[in-house]
Amino acid sequence: MDKHTWHILEILEENARATPENIASQTGLPVAEVNDIISKLEKDKIIRKYKTIIDWEQAGEDYVYAIIELKVVLERKQGYQTIAERLYKFPEVRSVRLISGDHDISITVRGRSMKEVAFFVAEKIATLEQVHSTSTHFVLKTYKEDGFIFDEPEKIKRLPVSP
């Protein structure tokens, strides 16, 4: 990857609302070229989506999250892709990952209450043919998400002037 593309991706990863003009200032590229590079990155599906991290708890909207680990039974001609597709189509399911270790798949489910999440898992997930067993862990507090720390950032303590 060339230096400018790398810069643009890092700038947008940090702030999806960075304007082309601002990116141009930071990279030394003309605005038109910045726009071209971003369009290509979108077209090539390197930039998949522009997203906002929201602290729903701060917004007064309480969501309950749970991480559910699944053991699955694979059938002939049906790999993990098939079960993954069935899982990610539920809007309640926020993430689906194939994992190593005691379980095969880890999903994150969001609901309005523990009861709602528990019922969703019992009715929609545990009942899937390929799902052999589930292990549900409710999230009590999220400290860091996608590299973003929800607590106040550490403040650097520096002298205002130094040589």
């Binding site: 002298l159 205002p160 002037v161 130094s162």
Partner: peptide
């Protein structure tokens, strides 16, 4: 340094060290 310490709402471009912890 002595002048700066007496001022408020200051933006400092006077620091010769990284702003990273």
């Amino acid at each position: 340094f002595d002048i700066v310490c007496e001022a408020d709402d200051v933006i400092s471009l006077g620091v010769g060290e990284p702003d990273y912890i």
